[in-house]
Computed example of a mutant assay.
Amino acid sequence: MGQFILDTSARLFSEQGFAATTMEQVAATCGAGKDTLYRRYPSKAALFTALMEQLRARVVEEIDSAMATEGPPLERLRAYARQLLAINLRPELMALNRVALAEAVPAGGVRAPAMADDPLMIRFADLVRAAQREGHLADGDALFLADQLLYATSIKPMIRSMLGDAQFSDPAEQERYFAQAWDLALSGMAASASTAGRRSR
Rank of each mutant, 00 (worst) to 15 (best):
I122L: 13
L127W: 03
A196W: 04
G33M: 06
R123T: 15
G33N: 10
P42G: 13
S192G: 15
R160F: 05
F168W: 15
R40V: 07
T21C: 08
P171M: 06
Y41A: 05
L12K: 04
R82G: 00
M121D: 03
S14V: 04
M121S: 04
M115F: 08
R198F: 11
R76L: 15
A179Q: 13
K44R: 12
L127K: 09
F168N: 02
L74Q: 06
T49Y: 05
R198P: 01
Q180N: 12
R199L: 15
E92A: 11
A79M: 05
A104P: 05
A107E: 10
E173K: 13
N88H: 09
A146H: 06
Q16E: 12
V60L: 15
A57Q: 13
L74H: 04
M162C: 05
I155K: 01
V105R: 04
A81V: 08
P171G: 05
F178P: 06
I63D: 15
R58V: 02
A95V: 00
S187E: 12
V128I: 13
Q174G: 09
R201E: 14
V59T: 15
S192W: 03
S43K: 01
V110E: 02
M158S: 12
A28R: 14
L145M: 14
M121N: 07
L149N: 01
F168Q: 03
M158V: 01
S200W: 11
M162A: 09
E75L: 12
S187D: 11
E53S: 11
R78E: 06
R82D: 00
R82A: 11
S187C: 09
R82H: 11
D126I: 00
R78Q: 13
C30A: 12
A107K: 09
I5R: 11
R78V: 00
M94I: 07
S65R: 14
Q180W: 13
L184Y: 06
D170P: 04
Q148Y: 05
G17L: 04
L12P: 04
R76V: 04
D141L: 03
A191K: 02
I159K: 00
M67E: 14
A81K: 01
T8F: 07
K44F: 05
P73I: 05
I63N: 11
D139P: 14
A138R: 15
A166I: 02
D126N: 08
K156H: 10
L93R: 14
R78F: 00
L85Q: 12
R90M: 08
S169R: 12
